[in-house]
Amino acid sequence: MIPSKEEMEKSFAARHGAALQKKFSAACVAICGLGGLGSNIALSLARAGIGKLILIDYDRVDVTNLHRQQYKACQVGMFKTDALRENLLEIAPYLEYETHTVMITEDNILSLLENADIVCEAFDKAEAKAMLVNFVLEHYADKYLIAASGMAGIGSANMITTRKITDKFYLCGDGVSDVEKSNGLFSARVTVCAAHEALTVLRILAGEE
């Protein structure tokens, strides 16, 4: 028997207080990209009780994803949206998960992100990151935007920071470690960066930013 909705809400409140729980459950966060960054951000936010997550990715789970991403071996071949929703429902069954199995383009960005209070950029390609950030800053300047740049390699996690660039735009990462110029990606380091993004969401909602 899984815990009831009331039991879970009580447990969230026990862990971080009823006042914060109210803010977290009223929030809607969009996660653009469900890879090493996005799937980890989603897990963190679901565990914190964020009321609604908008999960966007066009891709399928690949065996190489298991190295960093919150998917299971039995899910290889599934769409990431479907697999992640499955996993999130097992962890936090009473939250709302809206999935979109699409590639984000300038044609669909506006409608996909319309209801989000906070947008988390979690792509892997630099050009896609720049596209999304520019678009959100230009057309949705009232939304909070958290992006990430630089988490590749096995350099120290101490190099990964969260910088407030402007009023509602935050950048996580070390800013320089490019996946194409490094010795690969490591789960622990990517997860540090994902945690920076997730924690920034919680801090914004808590009024700490």
């Binding site: 090493g36 630099a126 990151k129 992006a147 630089g150 470690s177 490019d178 194409e180």
Partner: peptide, 10 residues
């Protein structure tokens, strides 16, 4: 001026 330069990975 803030110039954010994006690198790949994620």
């Amino acid at each position: 001026v803030e110039i954010v330069n994006f690198v790949g990975g994620g």
